[in-house]
Measured scan of single mutants.
Amino acid sequence: MTYRVRIENADGEVVTIEISADELREKGLTLEELLPPNARIVEVEEVEP
C-alpha cells in the first residue's frame, strides 16, 4: 500500500509526498515522525501501488 501525503510546512507551503507502507515499516517510523519541525499533515490518501 502507498500513501499520498499532503504536508504543510512552517512557511505555509503545501507539498505532496508518496511513501509506501513497506518503507515506513523498514524505517520503523510513523508518518508523523517523518515530518520536519513545525510541519503538519493536511491530508493522507491511500493509493494503489
Score class of each variant (00 low, 15 high):
Val47Ser: 05
Asp22Arg: 12
Asp22Pro: 03
Val5Cys: 06
Glu45His: 09
Leu24Cys: 04
Leu34Lys: 03
Pro49Trp: 14
Glu33Asn: 08
Glu13Ile: 13
Glu8Lys: 08
Val15Asn: 06
Glu45Arg: 08
Glu45Asp: 06
Leu34Pro: 00
Glu48Phe: 15
Gly28Asn: 10
Val15Glu: 10
Arg6Asn: 03
Ala21Glu: 10
Pro37Val: 07
Val15Ala: 07
Thr16Val: 14
Arg6Ser: 09
Ile19Leu: 04
Val14Ile: 14
Val14Trp: 07
Glu18Met: 14
Tyr3Asn: 00
Glu23Asp: 09
Glu48Ser: 13
Glu43Asp: 14
Asp11Pro: 04
Arg6Phe: 11
Arg40Cys: 07
Thr30Val: 05
Val42Asn: 01
Arg4Lys: 07
Glu32Cys: 09
Ile7Leu: 08
Met1Thr: 10
Ala39Leu: 07
Asn9Ala: 08
Ile41Ala: 02
Ala39Tyr: 14
Arg40Leu: 08
Leu29Val: 11
Met1Tyr: 12
Pro36Ser: 05
Val15Ser: 12
Glu32Pro: 06
Ile19Pro: 00
Glu8Thr: 07
Thr2Trp: 15
Asp11Ser: 10
Val47Arg: 05
Arg4Ile: 09
Asp22Gln: 13
Ala10Pro: 10
Asp22Ile: 11
Leu29Pro: 02
Leu31His: 00
Glu48Tyr: 15
Pro49Gln: 13
Lys27Trp: 10
Thr30Arg: 10
Glu26Ile: 13
Glu26Gly: 08
Glu13Thr: 15
Arg25Gln: 07
Glu45Lys: 10
Arg4Asn: 03
Gly12Asp: 02
Ile7Tyr: 15
Val42Lys: 04
Asn9Val: 12
Pro49Thr: 13
Pro36Asn: 03
Ala21His: 08
Leu31Ile: 11
Ala39Thr: 14
Leu24Tyr: 03
Asp22Glu: 12
Ala39His: 12
Glu26Met: 13
Ala39Glu: 02
Arg4Tyr: 07
Val5Pro: 00
Val42Asp: 02
Arg40Phe: 11
Ala10Arg: 08
Asn9Trp: 14
Leu31Gly: 00
Thr16Ile: 14
Leu29Cys: 11
Glu18Leu: 15
Ile41His: 03
Glu32Ala: 11
Arg4His: 05
Asp11Ala: 10
Leu29Thr: 06
Arg6Ile: 13
Pro36Ile: 03
Glu8Trp: 13
Glu23Tyr: 15
Val15Ile: 13
Leu24Lys: 01
Glu43Pro: 01
Glu45Trp: 14
Ala10Asp: 11
Arg4Pro: 00
Val44Asp: 01
Met1Gln: 05
Ile17Gly: 00
Met1Lys: 14
Glu32Gly: 07
